[in-house]
Simulated scan of single mutants.
Amino acid sequence: MNDVAAWDGGLVRTWLDRRLAAARLDQAAADRRGYGAEGDYDAAAAEEWVCRALQVGGHADDAAAFAAHIKTLLGQEEYRATGIHDDRRYDRNVRAHLRKIAKMTKANEGFANTLRYRA
């Protein structure tokens, strides 16, 4: 019996939708906390950007296309967003989120965990 699960594009899209919503809530919470939470705000904004970018183009239905899309995004020089506090920190967070999702994609695990980010 094969214990490796097949790629489920619907599950990946659901995971991205839920992480996008959670990132928005995290940004709002960090914004309410004020100056000391600017790093948290930038990290949540980076996660929102990544989830939104990965939703574009319908690549989630094919694991290879999804991985190629992530690789293309990782190859970008910079990631534009408004309202962030530190561009370098934001770019680092975007790349970290992309690398994390790339690992999840390669292993095809963690997308079923919609309650928490870490698998």
Rank of each mutant, 00 (worst) to 15 (best):
8 D>S: 03
8 D>K: 05
10 G>R: 12
10 G>Y: 09
10 G>P: 06
12 V>R: 00
12 V>L: 00
13 R>M: 02
15 W>I: 00
15 W>C: 00
16 L>K: 05
16 L>T: 01
16 L>Y: 08
18 R>H: 07
19 R>Q: 15
22 A>V: 05
23 A>I: 00
23 A>G: 03
24 R>H: 15
25 L>H: 15
27 Q>A: 14
28 A>Y: 03
28 A>Q: 11
30 A>Q: 06
30 A>D: 07
32 R>C: 07
32 R>T: 15
33 R>P: 04
33 R>T: 11
34 G>Q: 11
34 G>Y: 07
36 G>H: 04
36 G>E: 13
37 A>V: 12
40 D>V: 02
41 Y>I: 13
42 D>T: 07
43 A>V: 13
44 A>D: 08
46 A>F: 13
46 A>H: 09
46 A>M: 12
49 W>A: 02
49 W>F: 14
50 V>C: 10
51 C>L: 11
52 R>M: 02
52 R>L: 02
52 R>E: 05
53 A>K: 08
53 A>E: 02
53 A>H: 01
54 L>F: 12
55 Q>F: 06
55 Q>V: 09
56 V>K: 11
57 G>P: 02
57 G>D: 03
57 G>M: 03
58 G>L: 01
59 H>T: 12
60 A>R: 01
61 D>K: 05
62 D>R: 08
62 D>M: 05
62 D>Q: 15
63 A>D: 06
64 A>Q: 12
64 A>C: 08
67 A>K: 14
67 A>Y: 08
70 I>Q: 04
71 K>V: 04
72 T>F: 11
73 L>H: 06
74 L>G: 07
74 L>Q: 04
76 Q>V: 06
76 Q>R: 15
77 E>P: 05
77 E>D: 15
77 E>F: 04
78 E>K: 07
79 Y>S: 00
80 R>H: 08
80 R>K: 10
83 G>Q: 03
84 I>L: 10
84 I>Y: 04
86 D>A: 11
86 D>S: 13
87 D>C: 06
87 D>K: 11
87 D>A: 13
88 R>I: 09
89 R>G: 04
89 R>W: 10
89 R>F: 14
91 D>I: 09
92 R>T: 15
92 R>I: 14
92 R>P: 15
93 N>E: 15
94 V>R: 11
95 R>A: 06
97 H>L: 08
97 H>Q: 15
98 L>Y: 14
99 R>T: 15
99 R>Y: 15
99 R>M: 09
100 K>V: 07
100 K>M: 12
103 K>Q: 09
103 K>S: 14
104 M>V: 03
104 M>R: 11
105 T>E: 08
105 T>I: 10
108 N>P: 08
110 G>Q: 08
110 G>W: 01
111 F>P: 00
112 A>V: 06
112 A>L: 08
113 N>L: 05
113 N>I: 10
